[in-house]
């Protein structure tokens, strides 16, 4: 009688693994195996014409990378783009959340409109912004002319291309931040806010000393999410400027694509990718450290 019980127990211990086996195998084949392969590829001279074959050339691609001025441009663009989209995206999203947190007539509609940028598919968003930014006929230039600023080469000048992309990015990201912050604002107890107000604190003071401490952890979390997304973002940059003019908007991720499918150099493209991955992992690491510290503080 005892033998079947034991084997039964063993069997029960295996049940969780039976559950996770198929999904994990799936991710292994379509996510982690390509990732490893990408790492390997960065050490080879693989070309797009024959992508399954390539000879091992050691760190040659990385040497090439470090000697390429475009690499430093891309790294710089990626960092600047990520930092500024986090600052403006999280800033604008939080302001939006604070603005519509209290009931007012038409709130449901305003809330829906504020979410448009987040809900519109990337390619459709790119098409409309391309038209808004259009040189001779776009409405953005009509606006700047009306303001007396003259015409702007939104996407075709080195100075303006990255800021123009950032405007689109903030338009897309701020609504998501707003939704997250609205949820966080629910956690601020009304009584505390009212008490502070009764004690004579003005709006700014109430915000800084009562509201902000409650929503700061969430702001941190959403900042890290937005940062990771900015490092990953490909479509709108590639479709708005193609990384140009002269590489001035080519983030690491866009540079992977250009190197692989325009220069046919899969080895070098993979080296760009490896740097991009390290950057994203660094952000993830920062996130983990913050989370762990918070967990420790909360358990105290």
């Amino acid at each position: 009688m005892s033998t079947p019980t034991i084997s039964r127990q063993r069997l029960t211990a295996l049940v969780p693994y039976a559950f996770v086996a198929v999904p994990l195998a799936y991710l292994g084949v379509f996510m982690f195996w390509p990732l490893l392969r990408q790492m390997w590829m960065s050490l080879t001279d693989t070309r797009l014409m024959n992508p399954t074959k390539g000879d091992f050339i050691g760190l040659e691609n990385y040497r090439h990378l470090l000697a390429d001025p475009q690499f430093y441009t891309s790294l710089h663009v990626t960092v600047v783009y990520t930092l500024l989209t986090v600052i403006f995206g999280v800033g604008l999203g939080t302001i939006s959340a604070l603005a519509i947190n209290r009931p007012f007539p038409g709130r449901t509609i305003v809330r829906a409109v504020l979410l448009f940028g987040w809900a519109v598919p990337n390619v459709a968003a790119t098409l409309i912004w391309l038209w808004i930014y259009n040189g001779p006929s776009g409405v953005a230039n009509e606006l700047t002319e009306w303001l007396g600023l003259g015409r702007v080469q939104w996407l075709t000048s080195i100075d303006m291309a990255l800021p123009s992309i950032m405007i689109v990015t903030v338009w897309q990201v701020a609504p998501f931040v707003m939704l997250v912050m609205l949820a966080a604002l629910q956690s601020v107890p009304d009584e505390v806010r009212e008490a502070a107000r009764v004690d004579g604190a003005d709006a700014l003071n109430v915000f800084r000393n009562v509201t902000l401490p409650y929503i700061l952890p969430t702001m941190q979390l959403v900042s890290l999410l937005v940062a990771v997304w900015s490092i990953r973002r490909f479509e709108i940059i590639y479709l708005l400027t193609g990384g140009g003019p002269i590489g001035s908007t080519s983030t690491l991720v866009v540079q992977i694509r250009l190197t692989a499918f325009e220069d046919y150099d899969l080895g070098l493209a993979s080296a760009y990718g490896a740097v991009g991955l390290v950057l994203a992992l660094l952000v993830a690491l920062v996130h983990f450290i913050f989370e762990r510290r918070r967990a420790r503080v909360m358990s105290k």
């Binding site: 990408q38 590829m41 992508p51």
Partner: peptide, 19 residues
């Protein structure tokens, strides 16, 4: 591992996936 997948840029694995 699941969290990692949310950090990996699509553009990164598009080349090996292609192969």
């Amino acid at each position: 591992l699941l969290f990692m997948t949310q950090v990996i840029p699509e553009a990164l694995i598009v080349v090996p996936l292609y192969a």
